[in-house]
Nucleic acid binder design. Sequence first.
RNA 1: GGGCGGUUAGCUCAGCUGGAAGAGCGCCUCCCUUACAAGGAGGAAGUCACAGGUUCAAGUCCUGUACCGCCCACCA
Length: 888
Amino acid sequence: MADNRSIPKLYDPVAVEEKWCSWWEEHGFARAEIDASKPYYSIVLPPPNVTGSLHMGHALNITLQDVLIRWKRMQGFDVLWLPGTDHAGIATQNVVERRLAEEGRQRTDLGREQFEKIVWDWKDKAEEDILNQVRRLGCSCDWSRQRFTLDEGLSRAVREVFVRLYEDGLIYRGEYLVNWCPRCTTAISDLEVEYKPVPGKLWYIRYPLEMSGDVLVVATTRPETMLGDTAVAVHPHDERYKRLVGSTVVLPLVDRKIPVIADDFVDQEFGTGTVKITPGHDPNDFEAGRRHQLPIVKVIGEDGCMTQEAGVYAGMDRYEARDKIITDLQGQELIEQVQEYDHNVGQCQRCETVVEPLVSKQWFVKAKPLAEVTVEAVKAKRTVFVPENYERIYFEWMNNIHDWCISRQLWWGHRIPAWYCGDCQKLTVAREVPSNCEYCQSNSLEQETDVLDTWFSSALWPFSTMGWPDQTTDLERYYPTTTLVTGFDIIFFWVARMMMMGLKFMNDVPFRTVHINGLVRDEKGKKMSKSRGNVINPLQVMDEYGTDAMRFTLAVMATPGTDIPFSISRMAGYRAFCNKIWNAGRFLLLNLESQEPTSKDEMDTLKKSKQLNLGERWILSRLQRVISDTNDNLEKFRFHEVSNALYHFFWHDFCDWFVEYAKLNMTSVDLEKKNRTCRVALYVLEESLKLLHPFIPFITEELWHALPHSGDSLMQTRYPVACSQWVDVEAEEQMVGFQELVTKIRTARSENNIDPRKRIPIELACQQESKSFLEWQIDPIKSLAHLDQVELVSHLTIQEGQIRGVSQLADFALTLGDIIDVKSERHRLTQQISRNEDNVQRLQKQLQNSEFVNKAPENVVATVRERHAETVEQLEKLREKLDELPQS
RNA sequence: GGGCGGUUAGCUCAGCUGGAAGAGCGCCUCCCUUACAAGGAGGAAGUCACAGGUUCAAGUCCUGUACCGCCCACCA
């Protein structure tokens, strides 16, 4: 046990945090040991990318998981929290490429092997960094089970899944229109495209009809794609163009003859009601092209430049070509008009380059059959979303799902396990490197150079990390995981795909509950971004305010379903709370007599002996309520409610009232009393530390070790369980009256500018039934209201120089030697009277309403009656006091 | 175009199943009272966006409107 006197007034987080972080890890308190005698609780950490460092979103996400994990562990569950990192294919490759570019190098100069080696080096460093940052958060995960998506084990799972999906006909390869990022030079999935409104132009271009001198005017925002037009479409019912269907127009600049077709996807209202069809570069046109068997002309290449098909424009950058085409068309007077037109432009999620839709040979996952199963599972509540409304969003997406383009033309990732035969050209898909072509036995095989979308391996995370495809004990024990905590921004990217893969390969959902946490925003509710300059760095915050304060702030602000406007000033308030806990612990340590740990039994004995005083009975009762609320609300992921309630309980109930009340006994010469109060105080402190530990792990652990305990970690103790027999309604009611009286006296003092240090005499007048209570509580009242003499009387004497007050329990008169400020006293009373008058009126009206009296539940009516009577009584007394005031 | 969320104290937000409006910060007054000035005591401050409705009773449930934010779709 530490030397009590040496505990500093101010809590110093940094040193303390470091100490416990390594201590926890060294002792393996967070290591999962399969124990079938306990229920299990498992979470897989959403693996951070090995691209950067911890941000506030991680801090929130990890805090919430750690709260759940510590809570469940303390509840005696067999707990697994499995950590790891994600290789984050395109993101990491981009980061490394950018660094190479700073040195004037390119990945193509290095070659694939060399480049991959550099990325692995980067990964080692980045992984270490970010996991150390995760540790700093106090994250109690099982580091012995740490995984990385490119580990051999996980890669094996990836290959297994790929092969099985391929064998089941759920993976196919083909030429389709995909989103292509010309900067990353890879295909990306629909989800990786972000649409942003961009001011642009709508050009109306004249397409001459072959047979007549007429023209068809088409409108487009991307004139450069016209070189790839293979038709012009009109709506079949459009009277203006009906007769032209089947005729031919001559595509300007390239002089290609293309048909006019009818298709009802055309919106007659938009532009001129005619659409140029470019199957090679537009998703709708691609579909239309398939419906009408139109040829595909690819005029923009993978590098973002015009292809040979673009004739004289070949080799030009797509935007350069656009300008040139406009100029050329204008030269031929083929531009009818130009409109300013804002439209959404798709950008690459990773590099913000404008995405080019183009036709390319890629690998796809047939998503529909996989998605349907997951929808059924969620409908059947095998997985539930918290908050529930995310279910709808999930269904919406799953029901409209498109095939998933999984191949990427990158170097960093899982290489697709498919081999092309140099002889028969056929494809061999295999789990391990095949020696021969499975069709012609040729050994001239070359592996597919594409890698998989990074989310392909993430989708397997809940089971690949536990050793699948082997049937491991971990899988048997911890799958399905109990809870997934993640952000809504990756519901489709990740949650949806884990559902698909989990149900497909494990025949069960990957998690029972998905808790969706909000986005951490800045104080004003704006998204944090480098360009706005409003990014709050959690590492810096932890340095300055302590991890506990940051965690608590995040938890208290984590209202389900809403974003979190992270506020430094608010965190300063919660840092003060941390310090409060610190000092409460310090105070009790200074007063501690016995070195024995407390126990529930000890308290039970004390309670049964009927020796506990009001404060002690009250705080034990309040403790039961907060324990029960805490457990209930954690079960419902209501972190903000829990942390708020604990805050209030600890600071206001325990410190402000109980400890202040207890000081009387703690300084008493009656050693028995003193010891008893200390025991209760210590017990409540210990229970509070346990309750707070999931949120505030460091300070609580530090204090725990300063208190009389063995060397165990607080995280190994049992989380408090409410004991309903300890709820003491009588004590709670009495305490309410006690607090009201004390507060009223304090208010009267304060409003009359009486020095808080000055002890003054008081007269208390009360009804017969409260008399014994007041007699019993005379010392605490004296102590908490800073009085010297207390005189209990049946009626207050009327004297000059008195301040009068009224409470439920008793009326009082503070006698002052000096002159009191009659004017302000009159003002104060008048205000109180008017407030009470309003209340009486309102309550009266309610009671006169027979509907209310007849229909409202009895207890509600009774409460109103009671309140009414009390208010009337107070009102009378206040009027009396006002009358008794000397005339000024 | 479809969907979701928000609108409560000067600021940022709680308020779950409808029964006398809360927190943090800020503000005002007094106090360094031997745990804590990152503290203590007290105080001022809200027609809960608007309009209807259900109910004995609505910040809370229903309908509509306005404004703000987000997600999905992507009419060229």
